[in-house]
Amino acid sequence: MARLRTAAFLAPAALLALLLLYAPLAFIVNMSFTVTNSFLSPGGPVYSLENYAAMVQRYLPNLFVTVQLAALAMLVDLVLGFPFAYILVRRIRYRDLVRALMVFPMFGALYVAFGMSFILLPGGPADPLIHAFGLRNTDLLFSLPAVVFAMSIFTFPFMVMSIGTALSNVDPTLEEAAACLGARPWQTFWRVVLPLTRAGVVAGSLMVFGWSIGAFAEPLLLGSLNEQRSLALTLYKRGVVENDYGLSSMMGVVLLSVAFVVTYFSLRYSRGALVD
C-alpha cells in the first residue's frame, strides 16, 4: 500500500524522464551504430562502426575545438568568478541587486551572443577600446576570444553560485584567525580559503565545463569557421540539414559521454546530496 503510493507519486516524473530522455538517448545510441540513414531503408538498418571511425579520422578537430572552447570558458569563469564570489559573499550589502542583475546572462546564450555581436560590430560601442589595443573589429567579431567570452558570460552565474555557496559555508572567523596568527592575505587565501572551498570550486568548474560542451549560439554567431566546427553545431548540420542520422547521433553520443563524465564528477564533488 505504502509502496504503491510512493510509486504513484514518483511515476509522473519518472515517466517523463524515462520516455522523453532515457529512451530517446538509448535510441540515438542505437542509431549511432547505423550507417547514414539506413535506418529508413526498406532492408532495415545496417549496423557498423563506420560513424565512430569517422569520428576518429575526420572529426577529432571538432571534438578538440569543442573541448578547447569549454575549457577556456571555464578558466575565464574561474579566474573572474572566484574574486567575484568572494567579494559578493564577504563584503557586499547590496547582494539582492547583484543577484537580480546576475540573472541577465541566464536568459540565454542566444541573447548574449546576439548582443555581443552588436558590441563588436564596426562602428559599435567597443570600437575605441578595440582600436586602443591596436586591433580591428574583424579580429574580434568572428574569433575564438569572442566565442569564449560570450560563453563565459553565459555560465558565469553558475560558477559564482557554486563557489559562493561553498564560501558562505566557511566561517569568516577562520580567516580572521589566520590573519591574527600572522598570515598574509595571500597565505590566508592559499592555505585556508581555497582548501575549504575546493569542493565548490571543482564542482562549479566541472559544471560550467559540462554546460559549455554543448554551446551552440555563441560559436554560430560569433565564431570563425574554426569555432563553428564545434560538435553541437556540426551535429545540427549533419543531422537536421543533411539528414545523416547515423553520423549526427554518433556526435550526440560523444557529446553526451563527455557531459556525463564531467557531470558525474561534478555531482560527486558538490554537496550534491539534496535528498538523503
Binding site: 538517448l25 535510441f27 559540462g210 550526440g252 557531459a259 550534491g272
Partner: peptide, 24 residues
C-alpha cells in the same frame, strides 16, 4: 540518491543532444 540524480540528469545533457534525440 541515485533516483534523484537520474531525475536531475536532464539538466546536464547538452540541449543539442536532447533536441536531436527527441527529433529522431
Amino acid at each position: 540518491r541515485l533516483l534523484f540524480s537520474l531525475l536531475q540528469l536532464p539538466l546536464y545533457v547538452p540541449g543539442a543532444v536532447i533536441g536531436l534525440s527527441l527529433l529522431l
